[in-house]
Each structure stands twice: as structure tokens, then as C-alpha cells.
Nucleic acid binder design. Structure first.
Lengths: 230, 230
DNA sequence: GTCTATAACCGGATAGAC
DNA sequence: GTCTATCCGGTTATAGAC
């Protein structure tokens, strides 16, 4: 068993640290790999030993915010509360966590456009990578006392994750002071989402619900026939 | 009146044509500006005289599909029909129009991420550029016999445009044969959207509707104070 | 003033020696 | 794991031709 090589990890961390600082100071485009390597006290070639590309540094940062978010969210998820309170707490924590990085969020978005990226909201392949992230929303649901029809409960965590990506997409383009509009959007839509969820429990709407969920599974492609057959 | 064309226009067209063909054959990343210039029989420097960047060629192509879409949609919009039929026709025409370019659609998406781009669904600045595009949806609504509350009617064209961007976003990542999933998504969601619009006319739901529209105006930011120039 | 070309720049990325 | 040297391609500077 190789212990997670001590010195290597430090070097990697040093490079990432330098990159983050420079990105913040000068922005992503204005920061050259040469500058990052310099600041970290390594050669450019060496920097590429640790990060396959400049973009990958951003992804590394993203992973970091994800960890921070998980930490921030622990308390909220354990203390009970209504569905709305819980969802609101988690979403607010998300916006709070990513706030310091708004400046180069555009790159993150570009990354998300790559079909192979774990940030891509639609790709099937990256689903496993996303599971930790969707799991947060599963816990949001489970901890609330809101009872849900089974078919809906199965899909809702993913749906909420997609919703949360939509909010982030807005946030990326939000130039309002303190990202006030994003918070406003989030607060307003969380309310709508919760109302909608409660509405979906109404037995009268079961046919609509079932049809919608069927559509969802179809377009996701894990419905009945595996795409190979087609 | 300047007569529509000098030799310049032809050169520009030749470059764009060469670019399109190469992009299709080899993909966007694999096509160099030098190759495009070569194929068009001009120098690289000259190619940059006509297009500020490689990305701008993609945008030029996008403008072209937009024109094609407008043409394709004319008949549909003039022949009446229900709201659902009209929206379905317009959306189907859209997917049909962009189909040949799926291969490098990812770049389009990346372009859309740029806050200054007219494709960016959220930016205020680019709203005028989008107006021709949202106008199609205004005509979809106007031609149908569906009566709408005024406040909703004012916002709906833009909302439908945003919806249509969402479908395209899905399409970009859709790897199913013939983009079947995108068509399925579109057909299914058009139905939902129309149902929702009809639901919104219900007087009992007026408070929800008004609150939602208020939220929409708030986050768009044309509510009270205009943001300072960027 | 509109067009075209050549040469160079710059920075992300890679090869390969140590 | 680290470096140096180099490649490659988008982009720009600039000079000249129509």
C-alpha cells in the first residue's frame, strides 16, 4: 500500500494554492501557467505533471468548494426542520460557499459544457461522480417529515440537483452587488419548488405526475430499452 | 445606398464556407485557422480581418441557422392552429434547423457562457439582440386564439425563449441517434408548458401568478434601479 | 479607406533527459 | 518528480496593394 506520497501532495497543494491566489488577483485568463509555476516555485512542465490542464485546476477548486459545502450543510441536515427550511439552508450555504470564486466562475461553466465533465448536468456517464452531490438533496428530503409518493421520491434528489445547477448557472452571470439577485431567485424558487412538490402529492394529479416522470426517465434513457438496441 | 456587395462579401462568405466544411469534417478543435484560411485561399491575417476570432465564425453560423429557422417558421405561424400546434411546429423546426451542426454545438454553448454574448440567456445587455428571436414566440402566442392575462402575456415570449434555450442545452449534450431524446423532451415539455399556461389563466391562481411574475422582474433587474454600466 | 499578406508574439501543452 | 527545450495554434502588428 502506497501511503498518499507526502512530498508530492505538498507540491500539488502548493501549485493549487498559487493558482487560486493568482486567479483571484488577476482572473483566470490573465494568469499564465508560467506565472502559476513560478509562484509555486516549480517549472511549467512540473505543474503539468500535477494538472493535466489549466482547466483542471478549476475543477480541483470546484471539488474543494464541494467539500466545504458538505461541511457547511451537516448542521442544517441534522437539525430537522421543514422541507422548505432545509432546502433553503442547503441552497443558501451553496451560494455562500462559492461566492469567493465568482470572478472565474465562467470557466467553471465552460467546463460544465464538456460532455465528459462531472459538472455536465445531462451526461449519463458522469452520474456516479455526481452521486455525492445529489445525495445532499436526498438527505434534505429524508430528514423532513414530508411524505412523498415513491416514484417521485426516487427522482426528486436528481431533480433538485438539476434545479440547483440552474441557480448556479444564473449566479455565474449575475453581476448584481453581493449576488443579491441570485439569492432572491433562489429564495423565490425554493418556495415554488416546495409548493410544487406538495402539489404533486395530490392524488388528483397522479396521472400528470406519472406521465411527467415517465417522460423524465425516457429522455434520460434508462427507461426500458438500453440505448444499444436503438 | 451601398449596393449590397463588393468583392469583400464574397471573400467573407468563402472563408465562412471553408470554416463550416472543415468544422464538420474534423470538428472545431481539430480545425486550425491556418487550415481555414488555406482552404478559402486567403492568408491567416486576412481571415482575421473578417472574423475577430475563431469563435466568431461559430456565431456567424448561428446567425445563419437563425435566419433559416425564421424562414422555416413563416408558414407555421401564418396558418393558425392551436397554441400547442404552433409551439410544437416552431420548436420542431428549430431542432431540424440546427441538426446538421450538432457536432460542434459544444462551442456554441461555450459562447453562450460569455456574459457579453447574445446567446447568453441571462444578460440584460444582449436583450435587444435577442429580440428578433423572442419575437418568434410572441408571434406563436399572438396567432393562437389563446387569451392571456396581460401581465403574463408581456413576459411569456421571453419565458418561452428561455425554455427553448433549455431544450437546446439538452440537445447539445444529447448523443442519442437522430437526437431522438431531444425531440421527445421537446414534445413532452411543450405539452406541459401549454398546460401550465392554461392553468395560469385560472383566476384562483392569480396570486401565485402575480407573485411569480414579480419575482421574475426582480431577478431580471429591470424592476427598480438599473444597474450601473459594466 | 478597404483589403491582403508576412512575420512575429504569446501562452497552453508536450517530449524527453536527468 | 523535476527540469529544459520545443511545439503548436490562436492572435496581433504592421507594412504594403488596390
Amino acid at each position: 500500500m502506497t501511503p498518499p506520497t507526502a512530498k508530492a501532495d505538498q507540491t500539488r497543494a502548493r501549485i493549487l494554492e498559487a493558482a487560486m491566489q493568482l486567479f483571484r488577483e488577476k482572473g483566470y485568463e490573465q494568469t499564465t501557467m508560467r506565472a502559476v509555476a513560478d509562484a509555486a516555485g516549480v517549472s511549467t512542465g512540473n505543474a503539468y505533471y500535477y494538472f493535466k490542464s489549466k482547466d483542471e485546476m478549476i475543477q480541483a477548486f470546484y471539488a474543494r468548494t464541494h467539500t466545504e459545502h458538505l461541511a457547511a450543510v451537516g448542521a442544517i441536515l441534522e437539525q430537522g426542520g421543514t422541507l422548505e427550511q432545509r432546502l433553503l439552508g442547503v441552497m443558501r450555504a451553496k451560494l455562500d460557499t462559492i461566492a469567493p470564486y465568482h470572478r472565474f466562475a465562467g470557466v467553471l461553466f465552460r467546463t460544465a459544457a464538456d460532455p465528459g465533465s462531472p459538472l455536465n448536468p445531462f451526461s449519463e456517464e458522469s452520474l456516479p461522480v455526481r452521486s455525492e452531490s445529489t445525495d445532499v438533496f436526498a438527505r434534505v428530503l429524508k430528514g423532513s417529515r414530508t411524505k412523498l409518493p415513491e416514484d417521485l421520491a426516487a427522482e426528486l434528489p436528481q431533480l433538485l440537483w438539476t434545479y440547483h445547477m440552474g441557480v448556479i448557472l444564473f449566479w455565474i452571470h449575475d453581476t448584481s452587488k453581493g449576488h443579491a439577485r441570485s439569492y432572491r431567485l433562489m429564495e423565490g424558487t425554493v418556495g415554488l419548488v416546495v409548493k410544487l412538490i406538495k402539489l404533486a402529492r395530490n392524488p388528483l394529479l397522479a396521472p400528470v405526475r406519472k406521465a411527467s416522470l415517465k417522460l423524465l426517465r425516457e429522455i434520460r434513457g434508462d427507461d426500458d430499452r438500453p440505448p444499444a438496441a436503438a
